[in-house]
Amino acid sequence: MSIKVKLHPVLHKFTQGQGVIEVNGRNTGQCLREVEKMFPAVREEIRDKRGRLRSYYSVLVNSKYTYPKQLSTPVKDGDEVEIRLIAPGG
């Protein structure tokens, strides 16, 4: 299954400028792990020491937020997974 993973621009410095990575996976967690295998620095940025997604990133599928199943939402061929930075400032 071909899934496009769209990365927030703050992550592009970890992917040699690539904003969209095509991977295979059955759910959001598998897709993110595929991206992390290709670009280990992405993992360092988006996960904490225990491997949990950092609280200031959201995972969306086809533009919809996936809470509370950010890393276990099923995906199918053609879906777009997005990692989005939650903007904190004011």
């Binding site: 621009p9 703050v10 930075l85 939650i86 903007a87 904190p88 400032g89 004011g90």
Partner: peptide, 10 residues
């Protein structure tokens, strides 16, 4: 609600 980071906002 509004939030910003760099050149990004919501």
């Amino acid at each position: 609600h509004g939030g910003i980071y760099g050149l990004f906002g919501q």
